[in-house]
Nucleic acid binder design. Sequence first.
DNA 1: TAAACTAGGCGTATTACATCA
DNA 2: CATGATGTAATACGCCTAGTT
Length: 362
Amino acid sequence: MELALTLGDTSKPFSFLDKAPKMAGDKESGNRDLGFCMGLGVSGRSSRGGGDEEEDGDGDKRESPATDRRHHQQHHPPSTLLQLHLLPFSPTNPRNSHHSHKPSTSQFRLPWLTDHLGSEPESSGGAGRGLDVNRFPAAEEAEQSSPNSALSSFQMEFGIRSGGGAGFRSGSHKRVDMEGDNERDCSRGSDDDDNGLTRKKLRLSKEQSAFLEESFKEHNTLNPKQKLALAKQLNLRPRQVEVWFQNRRARTKLKQTEIDCEYLKRCCETLTEENRRLQKELQELRALKTSQPFYMQLPATTLTMCPSCERVATTTAPASSPAAAAAAPPLAKPKPRTYPFPHAPQLHHLPQAQPQAHQAAS
DNA sequence: TAAACTAGGCGTATTACATCA
DNA sequence: CATGATGTAATACGCCTAGTT
């Protein structure tokens, strides 16, 4: 006798999953509840959500070959098999989306970045530890002036306490590669080289963080214009905004990885349990087989698990008699399964892929 | 047109600092 | 007050793409 359990597409939702947050990709993947076929797209890189491509300011949708290459592995096949979206949150990958409107260096050269390179005196920050290394002139003025003065009050608020301060590389951080240790030594500064270049790390104010956070929800990467706008609005240096977004992306990814890990663990536990149960079921069936010699006389019969009703049905083998098969009672009715998929948990408040209209200005 | 070069962005790992228990 | 843990701003580096020469 041949036994085959086919655990396939089931229309039953898995109770286990009911509590799991829905994923962004559910609609796309048809929200199918499928069993036992796992395609685990485990990767350090985020797979992309619905909007795989981001329209940049020029309106041209594209995905760079490299990006495509990177993400290709995680692109879900159109199969109806279970798809574990392990990294579903992944917002758009706007990477490279800015390239088409990359500003020339001169276009975005910021006076305060160069003017104050290395010229920010340690004592310029003001009271106590509150050395506002980040502060550029506008902010300083803002601080000195009344909160109700000319500058927009919003901008004013952020100007009061802008932190950070290591970004002495005037935006072109890559130039370290070219310029080598000189720059590094310079930027590192030190006690002996105390021209204000010491790496000071000041926390961003709540308002600044909140604003950045809001911005991150809308788009998790920045084009140069957005960066500049944010920097201006928050009285930060563009480099700080850029760094914040980089770190923010890293944190998001880390968090998602943790979630995925936890989720996989649960998957594993559930599948182990399911496996145990099926093994037991199999043993019972075998025991039944030996206790009912009637079936022994039947030719090979395939027992198939009906995916919809979850009953074990007999599939008549070529030589079996239909009458005998029909007489065979249903052998078992398995308990409802609780597969932990396909809904992988997902971080909340993740930026969605969306065409960035504000880039149109660029 | 292809190749080399340049500039800028991003991801990742790591460091350094601030804060808190 | 000292100290370790934690969070996060900042740096370093490699890789990639697009634009320019």
